[in-house]
Amino acid sequence: MIAITGASGHLGHLVIKSLLAKTDASNILALVRSPEKAQDLRELGVVVRAADYDQPESYVEALKGVDKLLLISGSAVGQRVAQHKAVIDAAKANGVALLAYTSILKADSSPILLAAEHKETEALIKASGVPFTLLRNGWYSENYTENLAHVLAHGAVIGHAGEGRVATASRADFADAAAVVLTSAESHAGKIYELTGDADFSMADYAAVVAELSAKEIAYVDMPFEDYKNALIGAGVPEGFATVLADADAAIKGSWLSKNGSTLSDLIGRPTTPIKESIKAAL
């Protein structure tokens, strides 16, 4: 049986959709905090079990009979290491044969603030003795396209990325890669995959494509770190998360999220989704 944590989230749903094209629904286990909110998965024939990060013993029970596990990194920044440890410990206790983890690009060396918890989680996985695969995901195209309403309203993309380039791919691309690792006859144990889109682009490039497809005047406005952070706070983003977002742009400026080979497209057996297609779909 293949288990997915955070199965009711955006990436979790897409991984399950991809898995359904490769294996029977009865082989797929969706781990969710609130099973009553996963009725759509049950209707597909997927097995649903309750598992709560704040109740580590729930994972020990939920992972019974699981052969392969995808640990999708949690969303509670600052609390994720302890949460992930609960899953890793439960995987070890249940003799899980493969633990795949959605990490971040260049987790072991990246200066980006978000990398710290991923680096700690990777260390815990390696120390556990459970066979593992690290899926070091780059930036999701949806990190940008889900905010297009604000861009169109203000006629600008704002940021701190300078002329730095980012190689995004769609969530569905990353989900397909996870599904390949979880279902392939070839062993992926011990592999560390640095995953990015096939092409990278600057924020000015991104603004130009949005302008082209929306037939509106859209410009990229580059800002100093503090000014960008304060602009995000002014738009209602909590200060801590605003700092994380501004720091991510600083990482783009430093080329930490640019194109890193063709591993993602090689894994999924097709080109990654171009940013233009993601923008068009979002519009």
Rank of each mutant, 00 (worst) to 15 (best):
L14C: 05
K17A: 12
D24G: 00
S26T: 10
L31C: 05
L31F: 05
R33N: 00
S34G: 09
P35G: 04
E36T: 14
Q39I: 15
L41E: 08
R49Q: 14
R49Y: 12
D54V: 13
K68G: 04
L69E: 07
L70S: 01
S73W: 08
G74H: 06
G74R: 04
A86E: 01
D89K: 07
A90W: 04
K92V: 05
L98Q: 02
A100Y: 02
Y101N: 05
I104P: 02
I104W: 08
A107H: 01
A115R: 03
A115N: 06
A116I: 12
H118S: 02
E120I: 01
E122Y: 01
E122I: 01
I125K: 04
K126H: 10
A127M: 05
V130A: 02
F132R: 00
W139G: 06
Y144K: 07
E146P: 00
N147S: 13
A149E: 12
E163R: 03
E163G: 09
A167Q: 09
A169V: 12
R171N: 05
V180F: 03
S184L: 11
A185P: 03
Y193G: 03
Y193T: 06
L195M: 14
L195A: 01
G197V: 05
G197F: 04
D205F: 09
V210H: 06
I218G: 07
A219I: 15
Y220I: 15
K229L: 14
N230R: 15
L232G: 05
G234E: 01
L245R: 07
A251T: 04
I252M: 01
G254V: 09
S258A: 15
S258D: 15
N260R: 14
S262R: 02
S262P: 10
T263A: 13
T263Q: 06
S265W: 07
P271S: 07
K276G: 05
K276V: 12
S278E: 14
K280D: 02
